[in-house]
Design a binder for these strands. Sequence first.
DNA 1: GCGATAGGTGAGTAATTGCCCATGAGCAAG
DNA 2: CTTGCTCATGGGCAATTACTCACCTATCGC
Lengths: 317, 317
Amino acid sequence: MARRAEANNRLDDAARAGWLYYVAGRTQDEIATVMGISRQSAQRLVSLAMAERLIKVRLDHPIAACLEAAERLREKYDLKHVDVVPSDPGSSSTTVGIAEAGAAEIERWLKSPEPQVLAIGTGRTLKAAIDQLPAMECPQHRIVSLTGNIRLDGSAAYYNVIFSMADAVKARHFPMPLPVLASSPEERAVLHSQSLVQVALKLGAQANVAFVGVGELGPEAPLCQDGFLSQDEMGELTRSGAAGEICGWMFDHDGALLAGSFNDRVASVPLPSRDNASVIGFAKGRRKYEALRAALKGRIINGIITDEATAAYLLNA
Amino acid sequence: MARRAEANNRLDDAARAGWLYYVAGRTQDEIATVMGISRQSAQRLVSLAMAERLIKVRLDHPIAACLEAAERLREKYDLKHVDVVPSDPGSSSTTVGIAEAGAAEIERWLKSPEPQVLAIGTGRTLKAAIDQLPAMECPQHRIVSLTGNIRLDGSAAYYNVIFSMADAVKARHFPMPLPVLASSPEERAVLHSQSLVQVALKLGAQANVAFVGVGELGPEAPLCQDGFLSQDEMGELTRSGAAGEICGWMFDHDGALLAGSFNDRVASVPLPSRDNASVIGFAKGRRKYEALRAALKGRIINGIITDEATAAYLLNA
DNA sequence: GCGATAGGTGAGTAATTGCCCATGAGCAAG
DNA sequence: CTTGCTCATGGGCAATTACTCACCTATCGC
C-alpha cells in the first residue's frame, strides 16, 4: 500500500515536472526550484515522465509525401486503412514511428462506445505499439489473441502482447494458450477442441478489427528467434515457396496461403474476414518488404501502418 | 503560388524534423545529417514545428491533486465540466495551461459527428485557447459569437476570437458586428433588429455549448484596456456592486445579474440556458478569483477550466 | 539480525540545444 | 541597375540537459 502510494506520488511528481517542462516551457532549473528538489532530480522526473509515456507527443501536420504515399497505397491495394509515417534513415529500429502510429489507431478503435471485438497478433512490432497505449477503461470491448504464445520448449514467449494490452486498457481478453504450430493436423484438432480455445476461435470470427504483425521468413526470422519454429521447419517452408507469415499462416509470393501440411498444422485463429473486418498490418523495413508486398497482393491484410521507405517500395513493386 | 508551395515545404520539413526529434528521439545533429542541412537549420525547423504547433504535447496522467480538486469543485458548484491543470507558480501568464486544456475540450466538441452549435465569447484567454486548436474540417457545426467585437472608437478588436476559430476549424460562423455596450436600451433594440444580429441571437439560444472568458472589473479590467468600455462606465459599474462580467453581462458578488441600466444596454447574445447547454468558463489567476467565485455561485457558468491555485481558492471561498 | 539489492541522490562532466550575429540570396519598388 | 527589405544560413558561444559515478537508504529473503 505504502509502496503503491509512493510510486503514485513519484509518478505524480513526474507528471507535474513533465507538464511544467513540456507544456509550461520552464527549464529544469526552474522546475527544481518550484518543486523544491535538486536540478538533477527534476531532470530525472522529466525523463521519467517521458519513459513512462505520461507525456504524449504527436505530430499534427500532414507531411505531404507521407499523405501522398498513403493515398497511392490505398488505391493500389484497395485498402481500408493506410498510415505512412516518416522514415528515420539511419535508425535500425523496426518499430519507431510504427509503434506510435499503431497505438493511435488502436486507441481510435478502443474509444468507440460500441462494443468491439479486437483481435491481436503477436511480435515485436505489435508489442511496441501496445506499449504506447495509454491507460484506459474499456470494459465494453473484448480482445482476442489470434495466435498462441507457447514456444517449442513449452514456455510462454516474452512478447505476450495480449496481456500487456488488456492490462493497459482494462478489457476482457481471451488468450490462446497454444503453440503456433501443432505437430500434426490431428493434434491441432485436439488442441482446438479445448473450450478456452473454442471461445477464442468463435470470437476471432466475429472480430471487428485485427492488428497483426507481418513476419518475414528465413533463418533470421523472428518466428525462429523467438522459438516458435525450429530451423528445420523454417528451411522446409522457404523451400516450398513461402514468402511471409501472419500469425503463423504462411503465404507465397502472390499472397496465397500455402496449401499443404504447414498451414494445416498452424494452431492460430483464422484471420477475420477481410470483407467485414479491418485487418491491419504493422511493419516496416527492408526485411519485411517482400512479405508485406505478398500480403497486400493476396489481400491477406486490408490495412497497413508503415513508413515512407517501405511505402515507396510497395508502390514500385 | 510558388510562395505558398515553398511555405508548405518549409512546414513539411519542420514537421519532419519535429517528428525525428520528438518521436524518433534523434538529436538535432543527427537530424541535420539525415536531412542534409546544418545543425542550426535543424534546430530552427524543430523550433518552428513547435511554434507552429505542428507538434502537440499532452500530459496523459491524472495528477492526483488536480483530479481531486476538480472532483470537489464539481460537487461544490454542481458543474457539468471541470478541468484543473497544474499551476505554474512564478509564471505571470494568465493563459498557459488553460489554453491547452481549453483547446482540448473545444476539440472534443468539434469532433462530434452530430452538428453542434458552439457559442464563443471573447478575451485573451479564449483567444489563446483558440490558437491551440489544430486545423480541422467541421462543416457540420456552427459557431456563433456571443458578443460584439466593436470598440468604442468603431474599430474591431484584435481578439477576434470567432474568426480565428472558424478559420482553424472550417465551420460556418456567425459574428456579432456590434459593440459590447449600446448607448441606450433603445439603441440596443435597433441594433438587434438587424437581420445578421437576429441570426446570431437565434443561434445563441440553441447553442449546445458556450466557451466564455470571465472578466474581472476595475480600472485595469481587460474590458477597459481593450477599449470596449470607458473608464467612466467602469467606475459607475463597480460602485453599483458589480463583481465580474461574462460577455459583457455584469453580475454582483452573488453571481446575480445586475438589474438596471447596464445590462439593459449590453448588446451581447444572452448566455445559453444552463439547463440545456454547457457554459464553460476559462480563467485562472488572482485577479479573476472573485469574478469566478461569483459566476459559479450564481450558476452563470456550469463548467470551468482553471488551474490548481484558482481551484483551491474557489474551494475555500 | 544481516547482507544483498533496488532505487534514489548529488556532483561532476560531456553532450546537446538555444540564441545572437553577420552574411548573402531573392525580390519588389524606385 | 540600385536600393531596401525579408528571410534563411552557418558560426560561435552560453545555457541547458543527459549521463556516469560513487554513495546512501529502505526493503526483502535468509
